[in-house]
Amino acid sequence: MKTTHKMFIGLFALLMMYAVSANADNNSATNVSSVIQQSKEQSVQIVTACDGKKKVIVEGYKEGEPMPEHKAREVAKLLTALMDYCEEEITAKIPETEIAIQLSINGDPFISVTAIEELPLVLVHGGKPHTEREKRIWSAELNRMIDTGYKIFHDPTLGTNGISCDMCHPNASNTHPETYPKFQTQTKKAALLRDMINWCIENPQEGKKLSDDDPRMKALEAYIISERTGVILEPGKH
């Protein structure tokens, strides 16, 4: 994490050098494709990342012409994002007028990407990106667990008296799963989230508690944690 951070800073510094001194480094452009050659004849600057494999063609700025800060920042952000492609050779174009970024991977034809945030996500695992199939499975399995939890959370049959979890905890309010383990006054001892789920089942809901490895318990935890992730804890307000 630290290394990555340093690398980004280094990269950004490199960029700023380009932007401020506007000295295009001709040596860095040893392996440029015909696209780049063609671009060179127009009004463009080519910025190359430290690995020599990622290039950003910035249209609308001549070699040597300083870029405004926002543009330089955009280029830096894009190059940083491109570093996620590890060993791949990437050429990106930031057109002068269009909003979309043009991206070419390993010499493939350019494709259009609407924003830096929209770059096709390539996670790295064993040096290889995960496949789309894998990502679909992970997403489906995760969502199914959370959805199952959502259903149980809203189902009064977890207890016996017609009360479901959501009746006191809409959107899992006041569950703040991130605060466990903690001493819980109801149980008079340190408790985990699942202990309090069972406490609620047995007390307000007058039901029979679930075992720790009951798939319903796991699903409830999955729903609660996913629903509350990112919600700020405000002591005294829950």
Partner: peptide, 13 residues
């Protein structure tokens, strides 16, 4: 290796 990830990339689309 490059070829493989290129193909994966187009799979996204």
């Amino acid at each position: 290796q490059r070829k493989r990830s290129k193909l994966t990339f187009s799979t996204v689309f």
